[in-house]
Nucleic acid binder design. Structure first.
Length: 981
RNA sequence: GCUCGGAUGGUGGAAUUGGUAGACACGCAAGACUUAAAAUCUUGUGUCCAUUAGGACGUGCGGGUUCAAGUCCCGCUCCGAGUACCA
């Protein structure tokens, strides 16, 4: 009786769905375990084999935890707001909601292409998701709560005294009673006011001030504007100076935008990385991104004016080395301090800088540019005049947008000074700075008045002390992290629950969701407003009490920043999540997904989680306790060389002419071995092959001339190993009239290349094909077997037969021609040993998240049982349980056949029994007086005293002891047994 | 430039705390069954020497620690990832 995986898998898939086998219980007495995958964006292209890799691993773990008696939450959903659906809408006019639905549920798109549907593809692989909890970020019932969270953030400020976010009312109360003098907040409000002043202001004025305290705020800010996408982008959405999606250029633009004050959480985001179990590499990326640096801010007065330039420096110890200052071209003081005679030059420079894209600025690093403003600043300690320049190596968005330049200690300052012939002061004792700056921190300071003869560390401390004492500035910690731009000028995203009266934004006073209104076109308006400006007031489901609604939408990361909470209570219409449920489920125990979200999603969801914690809505501060980042599965493309010839005929009127018209015989495909060979050889070989194919008579007057060689990708399903299946390829490419030059062994070899999966390279492998051919269980085992989960690896189907063979073997072991064939006999010791070895190893490996090795362990076990011809029921029962996380369908089928009424999901993971493992030995190296003499094998489960006795009784030991009693015996299992004689 | 990973047979990889390197699988070779193919099964398979017995070498390179190093330490080479005027 054969292993009919299709039948089995369909049957159990249906059973699991109908019986809701994987439903998580909300108020269980069992311990909880939360296993989560990063939810996918449902694109029209569907899944390829790389997508399910992480899902299979998490599914294995979820099933394993269920077997261990945990109440497992293992949900799935869709991050369904996003660009591709919107781009498609712009092209076709189809509403993104329809595209999204088709991509998830399957169907056909507007061009008639068949869309498989994410859900259908996922279902085929046999995941144990609790689908009743599915979320879609573009569902109004979901984004209602995204909007709600936005409102909470809007109504909050960050209190530095309590080091947490608080509701804005506590701030207003302080303003009303004592003004802002004693308020310690994260804010960009730089004025102080009294309670009288506050109370005297009208609502609009008060709101303006409050805006600079809110955790999400509207402000004019320098943003990354992407003209091609027609929207602003956050820093993490830009890679190498171009947009991550589409690779379009990005420029700096001053725009009125919503931002999230994530910088308020910089320190906590940094510190709490120590509390989560993530890879060092991800933690490192986040640490770098947050970019903490400590130093001081110092004010420099501008000569004969009321203006002051504030700078941030990490090296206050080098303050006597300052010989000039540089402002960012966008710095607000530039216009005010520039002298009349420099005005034109400065204006020209500013204009040139503003036209440069981010990318140009980066690629221009070596070009040193700048312009003198004509103004001088006064050195706060020495009183010297220092020229003030502008230069685009200083960023407007970091620190204060201005630097004190210390050319002897900073290479960029040195280059700038060198280029413009500005003085370079040396303040480092015995260091040569004639060729380059000295940036090491091991120097001793000199020529620096009160800092003379101090090493860097002490000088820094003293300098900060003096700066603070003289009220020139203060010690300061600066973060590279910027506040996150929260507006997007797009349609397909969450609308803001915000309206405007004049220029002042207000939250909509409603508990209803603000739904995306229907619009006629998904493009910006003619006067450059976002697409939502096309909606009339009455198109919105909420009546606008002011002049207009907010036209921006929220960025992609809004919905994904809290989705893990919604799974706990996805249908709740009264709250974003029920308090009791979140108390029970807590944070995600195991999170699996790609490492590419390190500075985006993973940072933002930590931020929102901390905020919700501060507000008392959830009882934990970190969303994802343990995380594993699965590697990318690359495509394994195959290339062949297509050689072109021109054909000449000797004789006129020859039949060949007609023949040639019908069969343009100008191409030959050559096996990869021939690619390097001479084209003269190719001509000969091709001719020979044509003679073989068409006969000598026809070919005798034909001359071939080599023209060119083309490298051509061939579909991977016509290749096995390195060999091309020529018939398959001919069928696919209609190359029937071409000839194929094989190598000496008679094979046609291809060139292989590992690269990203893409349609144009014909190297995409969908999981569906493999499920149809080998079954879901085989696919699951094989994807795990491929190698360590975290590692990038090329896809290669060669090995899949081995994994498939193991499942067949298992099936055969317990079946004969008549069906199930199991014996009720008591298992032998050997059989039990094989089983218990497997239980132990599989359990240990899954527990340390090694998902590849258990597959090998199963194979060894089945091989051993086959050799023992073991078909004992008792062995099979346990084997099925431990196999079920990896190959749930076959396990469930056999489990039922053995007469079990309940799904194997509710079985208990067996405990291994050491008694069956005694024969497995430990090696004890035995040494005398510190020198190793021999290895002794003893059973693993021996007690320390027994080991000692066994070693003492050993023949070789006795020889070495020669009647003496050892003074000291040191026994450490698997470590050396040391005898001091 | 800075930060973090990685390098093991023909291939993917295993070796968990320093303890028989190469598990398991692919591929390859030989054999069995078959008219044949597929499927299945058996055997072999790191390199070199040797008919065998057996021996020598072997985890990117060079050193070190240790009775014992793929694993720990120092110095390099190459590959991958992140980041980049962050003052």
């Amino acid at each position: 009786m054969q292993y009919q995986f299709n039948e089995i898998e369909n049957k159990w898939r249906k059973y699991w769905a109908e019986n809701k086998t994987f439903a998580a219980e909300d108020n269980s007495v069992k311990p909880k375990y939360y296993v989560l995958d990063m939810f996918p964006y449902p694109s029209g292209a569907g899944l390829h084999v790389g997508h399910p890799l992480g899902y299979i691993a998490s599914d294995v773990f979820a099933r394993f935890k269920r077997l261990q008696g945990f109440n497992v939450l293992h949900p799935m959903g869709y991050d369904s707001f996003g660009l591709p659906a919107e781009q498609y809408a712009i092209q076709t006019g189809q509403h993104p909601a329809i595209t999204t639905k088709t991509n998830i549920e399957g169907g056909t798109d507007k061009d008639g292409n068949v869309i498989p549907g994410y859900r259908n593809q996922l279902d085929k692989i046999g995941f144990s998701f609790d689908w009743d909890r599915e979320v879609r970020t573009s569902d109004p019932n979901y984004y209602k709560w995204t909007q709600w969270i936005f409102k909470q953030i809007f109504n909050s400020w960050y209190n530095k005294e309590t080091d947490r976010a608080e509701v804005i009312d506590t701030l207003i109360e302080k303003f009303e009673t004592e003004g802002n003098v004693n308020v310690k907040a994260v804010t960009d409000c730089d004025m102080t006011f009294t309670a009288e002043q506050w109370n005297g202001w009208n609502e609009e004025e008060q709101r303006k001030v409050l805006m600079s305290y809110r955790l999400t705020f509207l402000s004019d800010t320098w943003v990354n504007w992407c003209p091609a996408l027609g929207t602003v982008l956050a820093n993490d959405e830009i890679k190498d100076g171009v947009s991550e999606r589409g690779g379009h250029p990005v420029e700096q633009k001053l725009m009125r935008q919503w931002s999230m004050r994530i910088t308020a959480y910089a320190e906590r985001l940094l510190k709490d990385l120590d509390t989560v179990d993530w890879t060092d590499s991800i933690k490192d990326i986040q640490r770098n991104w947050i970019g903490k640096s400590e130093g001081a801010s110092v004010e420099f007065k501008v000569e004969s004016s009321k203006f002051k330039v504030e700078v941030f420096t990490t090296r206050p110890d080098t303050i006597y080395g300052v010989s000039f200052m540089v402002l960012a071209p966008e710095h607000e003081l530039v216009n005010q301090i520039t002298t009349a005679e420099q005005k034109d030059k400065i204006e020209a420079y500013k204009k040139a800088a503003s036209l440069k894209s981010e990318r140009d600025r980066q690629s221009d690093i070596k070009n040193i540019t700048g312009e003198f403003t004509g103004a001088y600043a006064i050195h706060p300690f020495s009183g010297d005049k220092v020229p003030v320049w502008i230069g685009d190596y200083v960023l407007a968005s970091y620190g204060t947008g201005a630097v004190m330049a210390v050319p002897c200690g900073d290479q960029r300052d040195w280059d700038f000074a060198n280029h413009f012939n500005i003085e370079i002061k040396n303040i480092f004792k015995d260091k040569d700075i004639s060729e380059a700056a000295y940036a090491e921190k091991d120097a001793v300071i000199t020529n620096s008045d009160f800092l003379n003869d101090l090493p860097v560390k002490k000088a820094t401390k003293l300098a900060i002390y003096e700066i603070e004492r003289s009220r020139l500035g203060k010690g300061k910690t600066q973060y590279r992290l910027r506040d996150a731009v929260f507006s997007r000028q797009r349609y397909w995203g969450e609308p803001f629950p915000v309206y405007y009266k004049g220029d002042t934004p207000y939250l909509l006073d409603t508990d209803e969701v603000v739904e995306l209104p229907a619009i006629d076109k998904y493009l910006p308006t003619e006067d450059g407003e976002p697409p939502l400006a096309r909606a009339k007031k009455e198109d919105w489901n909420i009546a606008c009490p002011g002049d207009r609604m907010e036209y921006n939408t929220m960025p992609g990361w809004a919905g994904s920043s809290w989705y893990f909470l919604r799974y706990m209570d996805s249908k709740n219409i009264n709250e974003f999540v029920d308090v009791e449920k979140v108390k029970y489920w807590q944070n995600v125990d195991l999170y699996i997904g790609g490492a590419e979200h390190a500075t985006g999603h993973l940072l933002y969801s930590r931020f929102w989680t901390k905020f919700l914690y501060d507000m008392g809505y959830i009882p934990f501060e970190e969303p994802f306790q343990k995380m594993i980042n699965q590697g990318m599965i690359q495509g394994n493309s195959a290339y062949i060389a297509e050689v072109h010839f021109s054909i000449a005929f000797w004789r006129e009127g020859h039949d060949l002419e007609k023949f040639y018209d019908e069969n343009p015989l100008t191409t030959m495909y050559v096996a990869s071995e021939y690619i390097e060979s001479d084209f003269v050889d190719m001509e000969k070989e091709c001719h020979k092959l044509m003679v073989e194919k068409f006969g000598e008579e026809l070919m005798k007057d034909v001359e071939l001339t080599y023209a060119s060689t083309l490298r051509k990708a061939v579909p991977i399903d016509s290749v096995s190993g390195n060999k091309l299946n020529i018939e398959k390829y001919i069928k696919w490419s209609n190359a029937g009239s071409s000839v194929f030059l094989k190598n000496k062994n008679g094979d046609f070899t291809v060139e292989r290349e590992v690269e990203k999966m893409s349609k144009s390279k014909y190297n995409v492998q969908t999981p569906d094909e493999l499920v149809d051919k080998y079954g879901a269980d085989t696919l699951r085992c094989y994807e795990m077997f491929l190698g360590p989960l975290e590692q990038h690896k090329p896809w290669d189907t060669q090995g899949i037969t081995g994994v498939n063979g193991f499942l067949k073997k298992l099936w055969r072991l317990f079946h004969d021609d008549n069906g199930l064939n199991v014996s009720d006999e008591t298992p032998t010791k050997e059989e039990l040993k094989s089983l218990h070895k497997t239980i132990k190893k599989v359990k240990e490996d899954i527990e340390r998240f090694a998902f590849n090795t258990p597959v090998s362990t199963y194979m060894i076990c089945v091989n051993e049982l086959t050799a023992l011809k073991c078909n004992k029921k008792d062995i099979l029962q346990d084997l099925l349980i431990i196999l079920s996380p990896y190959a749930p369908h076959i396990a469930e089928e056999l489990w039922a056949k053995l007469g079990n009424k309940e799904s194997i999901t509710y079985a208990v993971f067996p405990k291994h029994n050491d008694a069956y493992l005694v024969e497995s030995n430990h090696k004890y190296p035995v040494s005398f007086n510190g020198k190793m003499r021999f290895m002794l094998e003893l059973p693993t489960n021996m007690k320390k005293e027994d080991v000692e006795a066994a070693v003492m009784a050993n023949e070789q030991t006795l020889k070495y002891l020669a009647g003496q009693t050892p003074k000291k015996v040191i026994v450490v299992p698997n470590k050396i047994v040391n005898f001091v004689v």
